[in-house]
């Protein structure tokens, strides 16, 4: 690991200003992803800004009936919150499907949104990777691509976004609240938060330099039946090959978002009109234009079957 200087942040605005001012600075919260990457020297920050002391670990009801989730709320606490279990079960289910008990106790809401891909070539510093070293090439295109993305990808990068939680947040149309280096605040719709790789796969989010996520706001509850169905190589403690988050209403309408198939949580609102027609129609629209590799083409029928299972359960 490269050495780094370390400070404890005093306020969100000061943390954002410091992160923008100090070269190669990173925020650290749970640290479960960043420290892993630092040990491998995939990440080599020169300065860490520890945000754990900021009072961003609260859950509070919003006037419109929604729920504000502080950026530092741990994954365990978010999944265990009575309001989340009752009103946003798809979110609780997604959180509980990810990682291990130990990791969920450390991992935070904002850190989970911002976690990096588990593409094996991003992790292997001996291999070209456009996300890690822009312009060096993509080893995955001709390499081991079974776990990787097939839609929203580019010729420079087919990395998949690893988060389960973010898929549920996308389904719920969450808003990402931030403070910028100049102290101004804004809310980024989750649909605009994660960027597609295009020619710059190293830029993964809409955050400006130094911009700090302070909370994620959930709109008022949707009702309906909630599902998070994750398909993986082991029954527990593994990343998704494919996941389906869905809310299905009594009249058969609803929402669907996918994990494991794209560089960000994958949802197309236009495809949801096809829900009454069944999983095949929805999948065809959701994955229209997909460019799978030979190794990950299996994910297309897997999405359809997983969605089909969810819709059958919703009817039952």
């Amino acid at each position: 690991m490269k050495s780094f200087t370390y400070e404890k942040a005093q306020s969100p605005a000061e943390a954002a200003a410091a992160a923008a001012r100090i070269p190669d600075a990173r925020f650290i919260a749970g640290g479960t992803n960043l420290l892993d990457l630092m040990k491998l020297e995939v990440e080599t920050p020169a300065h860490l800004i520890d945000v754990n002391g900021l009072a961003l670990d609260r859950l509070e009801p919003l006037p419109d009936g929604g729920l504000r989730v502080g950026a530092l709320v741990r994954n365990t606490d978010l999944a265990a919150d009575a309001r989340v279990r009752r009103d946003y079960p798809v979110l609780a289910r997604a959180l509980l499907a990810g990682a291990s008990g130990q990791l969920r106790n450390k991992a935070t809401t904002a850190g989970n949104l911002l976690q990096r891909t588990r593409c094996p070539y991003f992790y292997d510093t001996n291999q070209p990777c456009n996300k890690r070293v822009p312009g060096s090439g993509c080893s995955a295109l001709e390499g081991f691509s079974r776990p990787l993305a097939l839609i929203g990808v580019s010729r420079t990068c087919i990395a998949s976004h690893p988060s389960d939680m973010a898929v549920a947040m996308r389904l719920l149309d969450a808003g990402v609240e931030t403070v910028k280096a100049d102290g101004s605040r804004r809310v980024i719709p989750i649909a605009d938060f994660h960027r597609l790789p295009g020619d710059t796969p190293q830029h993964e989010s809409a955050l400006a330099p130094g911009e700090l996520v302070t909370a994620v706001s959930l709109p008022p509850p949707l009702g309906g039946k909630h599902y998070y169905r994750k398909v993986r190589d082991r029954a527990s403690y593994a990343f998704a090959l494919v996941s389906v988050a869905a809310v299905v209403q009594p009249d058969g309408s609803g929402r669907v978002a996918l994990g494991g198939v794209a560089p960000r949580p994958w949802r197309l609102e236009s495809a949801e009109a096809a829900l009454p027609l069944g999983a095949r129609a929805v999948t065809e629209q959701l994955l229209a234009g997909a460019t799978p590799t030979q190794q990950n083409a299996f994910k297309i029928p897997l999405v359809q079957r997983t969605l089909s299972a969810v819709l059958a359960e919703a009817k039952g």
Partner: peptide, 13 residues
């Protein structure tokens, strides 16, 4: 009182 992986956290924290 909460279980964590001590390898993935900095002592200074």
């Amino acid at each position: 009182g909460r279980r964590i992986n001590s390898c993935l956290t900095l002592a200074v924290m």
